[in-house]
Amino acid sequence: MNKDSASPYQGNLKLTGTSSTLGGSYDKVRIVGDAVVSGGIACSEMRCIGTYDIKGSLGAGSIRLVGDGVSEALRAGTVKLTGKAIVGRDAEIGELAGAGDVEVGGALKAGDISLRGSLRVEGDCGAERFRPKGMFAIGGLLNAGDIDIKLYQNSSAKEIGGGRIEVARGSVISPLSLVFRPSSDAVLEASIIEGDDIHLEHTRAGIVRGSRITIGEGCDIGQVEYKERLDVKRGATVGEQRKV
């Protein structure tokens, strides 16, 4: 992202073994082992095998984490992880991918989320594309242009809104299911779901509003309001339906 000639970062930081350091601005940060950082870090690239515990904000062009990472606010171009990342406050991430757990204490704003595993967000979660495989719990609004959810365990969001919204159970024959088995009774719960094209399975919602809606197997929806088309499949329950 940064041009080399005008890089605001000075030098690299390498931490091996159990170590603690102050924060600062660096070009590349490499951590192998357990690192405790007593301030914020800004860097162009961060790679960690092991754990980091940053008592401050973390800003990075890219983050590759194998292990566990804890920081306060987080701002990153890309985050790829195998393991667990905990963010105390808000997180802003261009692309979030990998396998594992992500916990955000504030709001999460992202371009692309394609996480396999578990995502917990206390506040709102906004993304251009939201394509998780696993489970998620979002305390506020899940707002994304394109939503493609594969449920492996019970998931929830207070409200869901966007362009295209698709919810289905994870497939048992995917390679992921060897380590992470889709639960046969996983459901998604939300009070309101609004979008242009909505296709739901195994979803419990109070209200679903949209233009073209399919309510599939295992759904229990209190009320559906649709503009163009509504298709209620067998094995779905819809309390009330209205064309508006």
Binding site: G126, N143, A144, G145, G162, E194, D196, R209, S211
Partner: peptide
Amino acid sequence: KKELLEMTGISYGQLYRWKR
């Protein structure tokens, strides 16, 4: 919200994108 979408002809997708 319903009346707004109807009056302006914008979609849910647009409304949520603008909010984002």
